[in-house]
């Protein structure tokens, strides 16, 4: 680990007064990466005691402070009651010990688990721009099938962010110049393109202050994480779905996929095909196949093209009461 300066942010308003550096939340990902010489910041700005650790209910939204721990968020009565997909997604991630430390903002900004990103002996455009991507023709079972580029096929590992994408959450930020930013979670993360080193659209030194969940979310919600091991495993594929059923018609349908792309993937094509329709198994499959039309496997992860639609269809059937078969 490279030696670094440590500063503590007292309050978001002081952002302009600390050195620009990497923000430190729970440290469950960043510190590991620093030990492995993958992240080498000169300055760490500890934001865990900057007063961003509350969950507030407002009229039109629920505001989640960026330093609320994953455990506290998952177990909050309001979240459990109105946003069960978020609670469920959080609890499917990591382990109890990690969730106790991990923060909301840190979870959003965690980095990929691509094995080639983690191994400094290997080529990785995300870690070292221009070095190449050894995952492309390598061990890529966990990698992206949607929105990837020849420069990077890594996926974003968060469960929480997938649920937030389905809930239409908005990230509230503060920039160094004191201005506030508002970014939908679906637009926070980037597709890799030719800059896979950039995970997200935040400016340098821009701090996530909170995440805002719109009030009155769809009533039917579900999170499903497909994984090899029952706990402490990253998603092979995951999905968050939220919708309402009004007179037998699907309304406000939102489907987000994890484990398939460089960002939580909103299945907007499928959503558009299904919105307002009556639940029907064949229609579900058709919509998901449409969504997967551009999906591209890289060998070891080809099966995700079959798996992802099946997961979503199974969830939709259960949510809409169609049941199995």
């Amino acid at each position: 680990m490279k030696p670094f300066d440590y500063q503590r942010l007292e309050t978001p308003e002081h952002l302009g007064h600390v050195e620009a550096g990497r923000f430190l939340g729970g440290g469950t990902n960043l510190i590991d990466l620093m030990k492995h010489q993958i992240e080498t910041p000169d300055v760490l700005v500890d934001v865990t005691r900057a007063g961003m650790d509350r969950i507030e209910e407002r009229g039109d939204a629920v505001l989640i402070g960026s330093q609320v721990s994953n455990t506290d968020l998952a177990s909050h009565p309001l979240i459990r009651r109105d946003y069960p997909v978020l609670s469920s997604a959080l609890l499917s991630g990591a382990t109890q010990q990690l969730r106790n430390k991990a923060t909301t903002g840190g979870n959003l900004l965690q980095r990929t688990r691509c094995q080639y990103f983690y191994d400094t002996a290997r080529a990785c455009n995300k870690r070292e721009p221009g070095s190449g991507c050894d995952a492309l023709d390598g061990l890529n079972r966990f990698h992206a099938i949607l929105g990837a580029s020849e420069n990077c096929i890594a996926v974003h590992p968060s469960d929480m962010a997938v649920a937030m994408a389905a809930l239409g959450a908005v990230v509230v930020t503060r920039k160094r110049d004191g201005t506030e930013g508002r970014i939908p979670v679906t637009e926070l993360h980037r597709l890799p393109g030719d800059r896979p080193d950039l995970d997200h659209v935040l400016d340098e030194g821009e701090l996530i202050v909170a995440v805002e969940l719109p009030a009155s979310p769809p009533r039917l919600q579900s999170y499903r994480k497909v994984r090899d091991r029952s706990s402490y495993a990253f998603a092979v594929v995951s999905a968050a779905i939220a919708l309402d059923l009004e007179d037998g018609h699907m309304r406000n349908l939102r489907i987000a996929l994890g484990g398939v792309a460089h960002k939580p993937w909103r299945a907007t094509k499928a959503e558009a095909m299904l919105e307002g329709k009556m639940p029907e198994a064949a229609l579900f499959m058709e919509a998901l196949e449409q969504e997967m039309a551009d999906a591209e496997g890289h060998g070891h992860n080809d099966f995700k093209k079959i798996l992802a639609p099946r997961v979503v269809v199974a969830m939709l059937r259960e949510l809409t009461g169609l049941g199995g078969n």
Binding site: R113, Q115, Y116, Y118, D119, A121, R122, D134, D137, G138, L139, D228, R229, S230, S231, Y232, A233, F234
Partner: peptide, 24 residues
Amino acid sequence: LMDDRFGSFMTRDFAEYHIAVNRD
């Protein structure tokens, strides 16, 4: 898992090398 192009094992921590956890 070894990347046979390099002779290097790529699953080098307990997040990647899966041993059974209690729930399994």
